[in-house]
Design a protein around this nucleic acid. Structure first.
Lengths: 191, 191
DNA sequence: CCTACCGATCGGTAGG
DNA sequence: CCTACCGATCGGTAGG
């Protein structure tokens, strides 16, 4: 029934593999055994497809962060945020790739909206790290840089993660949590 | 004299801002006050421009790693590699951005060559980390993941580094070194 | 380095 | 969902 979801999903795979601009509407249609013009009964434009993918991923990240109890202690909160973040990427790698790689090709009004959603999402991490520092659980030289360092390590995952590989979500999450917590000088040993 | 270098440099800026496929040959020419066809006295194809940028960046990374004395102790070697890596990115942000973001749009023969250069470059990091673990300077749960974690944190820099910002290379290098060394459970305090 | 031009392909529409 | 088609733009060439 929902042909639009089929189109978006196929487009997501192709955008991940070839990039947004190197994928034509005809490419997407062909992969679905359709003619290019047939897509336009379900979508208004190529840009709309990109928007659906990128905005959907932004929403997935935001919702997964908002599902975490805000009253958790900061170390547990950060651990849950790391797990949630990795889960969104692993659960839908093409969407995550397009989100990180192609969002800039949205027209400015829309890309600004994504930037806002992303800032909001990242604030959950910043907040947890900030609270952790205040409570003496974490120790960093430069809080701003610590945030950037952690986002960097998490955001590059889509570049190398192999869904067919051996690394499953739980192990990935444990490894990330351990390295990030060590980089934050986490005091407790068992987490 | 070297018009080709002018073309490549301007293209690098535009590719960084808009992406390879969203930048036309006419865009590059216009930014140099030329007509599109005029570029073809200096270049063979648009692809050649991309190749010059990406291969040049790959070479810059590789050379900077090869300039480090191989007999340094592993902790000092890793520190020097981090510094060299950040220097290449900071010294030429557009080239680095295109290298990380657009290399995949090279035809397969050429992109494979880049992948090989990159593997070779990364092996310097892997080697230093491996030696550090062997000598008991570093402790990690999963060496393979530790490598990926560190590359991730370093490779995402081009996404957020602001050349006009306050963070200069030396401070950036210190901050990265500190967080990475902590994530590796580095035993000595003064580095 | 320019003018003039090429075939191919692009995103998208009309009409059924 | 298709055929037929649109104007615009693409990378690139010829010839000067």
């Amino acid at each position: 029934m929902d042909r639009k979801a089929d189109i978006t999903q196929m487009a997501s795979q192709l955008f991940k593999e070839r990039g947004y601009h190197a994928t034509s509407v005809r490419d997407i249609a062909q992969a679905l055994n359709l003619k290019g013009s047939s897509l336009y009964s379900h979508i208004a434009s190529k840009e709309e497809i990109l928007w659906e993918i990128v905005e959907g991923a932004a929403r997935a990240f935001l919702h997964s962060a908002q599902a975490i109890p805000p009253n958790l202690p900061p170390d547990q909160k950060l651990k849950a945020l790391i797990h949630a973040h990795l889960n969104v990427i692993v659960a839908n790698l093409p969407d995550a790739s397009v989100f990180f790689h192609e969002w800039q090709f949205l027209p400015e009004t829309l890309s600004r909206e994504i930037t806002l959603k992303r800032d909001h999402y990242e604030s959950y991490f910043r907040q947890a790290i900030h609270e952790g520092i205040e409570q003496g659980l974490f120790q960093v030289q430069d809080e701003h840089f610590a945030n950037l360092f952690i986002f960097s390590s998490l955001n590059w995952l889509y570049q190398w993660y192999d869904p067919e590989g051996l690394l499953r979500l739980e192990q990935l999450s444990n490894l990330y949590t351990q390295m990030i917590f060590k980089s934050l000088n986490y005091q407790k040993l068992n987490h």
